[in-house]
């Protein structure tokens, strides 16, 4: 590679889609949108926030339209997994280099984006996950949540031999190789821990990066107390069966 080529390569714009699934997030969406626009990203980033409105029953749709933000309106409620996959499909088809998943409730500060994205730009990983637990800074989540996260860490390590400390974190970045995988299949409900199995079986390199997260600014977490047991069972079963299906049936998921 000639020096001038390398320079061009270094200065090449990186197209990044920020996929933001939202369900009834009318109070959070305007702030988040403005915060993303006002964030000083590195100059080579070409960032586009893409909101996926999962058939909200409040005014999320009108607000997104009013803001002039790129948004995709799902005609029926698909749940978080289906909504995120819609955004990933958008990013994949529109030729984005990297897609970042960011929660619509303001938990994931846009200022931390470059931490997870740079790992992919440097080609150190295919999937990078923003973790709360690597150094213990920032908002640390509730006790029960941490117990669950600990359990999934063990399960993942047992099944695929990969240790992901914060397997429920939704602050993730995917490169095109990973986007190709999720374009085909993505878990439905509570998809984050299952997706790790999906990535590992497809031999994608996963990297975890410490990010500081905030407490939710409004709305409720999709994981509510009385649903915890259902959540644990669903995710455990989902993880185990996804592993079996991918491992023993080849990679045909349909």
């Amino acid at each position: 590679m000639k020096p001038c080529d390398r320079e061009r390569e270094m200065n090449k714009q990186v197209r990044i889609a920020i996929v933001i699934p939202c369900y009834n997030e009318q109070d959070n969406v305007p702030d988040l949108y403005r915060e993303i626009l006002n964030t000083d990203f590195p100059p080579r980033y070409d960032v586009l926030p893409v909101f996926v409105n999962d058939c909200s029953t409040d005014r999320t749709r009108e607000i997104l339209k009013g803001l002039g933000a790129t948004h995709i309106n799902l005609p029926v409620n698909l749940g978080i997994g289906g909504a995120v996959q819609t955004g990933y499909k958008y990013a994949f088809r529109h030729g984005f280099d990297i897609a970042v998943q960011m929660d619509g409730d303001g938990q994931h500060p846009p200022g931390e984006l470059s931490k997870i994205v740079d790992v992919l730009i440097d080609d150190l990983a295919d999937v990078s996950i923003g973790s709360r637990f690597l150094t213990g800074e920032g908002f640390q989540s509730s006790y029960m949540r941490r117990v669950g996260i600990h359990f999934f860490r063990r399960l993942n390590r047992f099944l695929v031999g990969v240790t992901v400390n914060d397997s429920t974190s939704g602050y993730r970045a995917l490169n095109r190789k990973a986007l190709e995988v999720v374009n085909e299949y993505y878990p439905d409900e509570y998809p984050e821990p299952e997706a790790i199995v999906l990535y590992t079986v497809h031999k994608l390199r996963i990297h975890e990066v410490q990010v500081n997260m905030r407490e939710r600014q409004g709305g409720k977490s999709s994981i509510r107390a009385f649903k915890t047991i259902y959540y644990m069972m669903k995710v455990s079963l989902g993880t185990i069966f996804l592993y079996i299906r991918l491992k023993f049936n080849g990679k045909h998921l349909n």
Binding site: V52, T70, N73, G82, Y90
Partner: peptide, 20 residues
């Protein structure tokens, strides 16, 4: 369930394309 999900996503993506 899977077919409906795929259809809904296709439709939403097409609608976005049309509107933009």
């Amino acid at each position: 369930h899977k077919q409906i999900k795929d259809l809904a996503q296709e439709m939403a993506l097409l609608k976005e394309k049309l509107e933009s």
